[in-house]
Design a protein around this nucleic acid. Structure first.
Length: 173
DNA sequence: GTTGAGCGTT
């Protein structure tokens, strides 16, 4: 049963149309300014908020965009889902929640982003070397190949190297 | 500089 003081409408699978869009799957380098620029094509935008992780100060990879008109939000949602920004394919939906939580003085009451024993949700200790665990086989987290995401990023990085002595026309010597 | 999924704590 849902609280009568709920701050969200609808459900994850079935968000109800509103002026507020949630944008997910963002690169952590995508800015509110970029998003504003993109979303303004569909109508006046009241506000853009990229959600920042309080601990690291970096984007958590999602944001909320408030349009002035729900109709514009609808069009933007339809047009922008699947769009690529900074190498990431984004998902756009009507927001379930309509605003941030009310700030609570004192201790943080939200869901923890990280497990409290310092172990990430992938079972690796923070700071542990990436390459050695996997070769033990049988349960090592690296026995599988890197994720498609990671391989793609790696590929793009290699493509964007600005200088390569072998291929600059002069050779190495 | 970016892994994995993610609905927000000014």
């Amino acid at each position: 049963p849902m609280s009568s003081r709920r701050r969200h409408i609808g459900s994850r699978e079935n968000p109800q149309p509103s002026r507020c869009l949630g944008i997910f799957g963002l690169s952590i380098y995508t800015t509110e300014q970029q998003l504003h620029h993109i979303m303004s094509k569909y109508g006046p935008v009241e506000r853009v908020q990229v959600v920042i992780d309080a601990k690291t100060g970096r984007s958590r990879g999602f944001s909320f965009v408030y349009f002035e008109n729900a109709e514009d939000a609808k069009v933007a949602k339809e047009q922008c889902t699947g769009m690529e920004i900074d190498g990431r394919r984004i998902r756009v939906d009507f927001s379930i929640t309509q605003r941030a939580h009310t700030p609570t003085p004192g201790i943080y009451m939200g869901k923890p982003t990280y497990l409290t024993d310092g172990r990430s949700q992938w079972g690796r200790q923070k700071g542990e070397n990436n390459y050695y665990g996997g070769y033990r086989g049988g349960g090592g987290y690296r026995e599988r190949s890197p994720s498609p995401y990671y391989r793609r990023r790696r590929y793009e990085r290699s493509r964007s190297r600005s200088y390569s002595p072998r291929f600059d026309g002069r050779g190495i010597g």
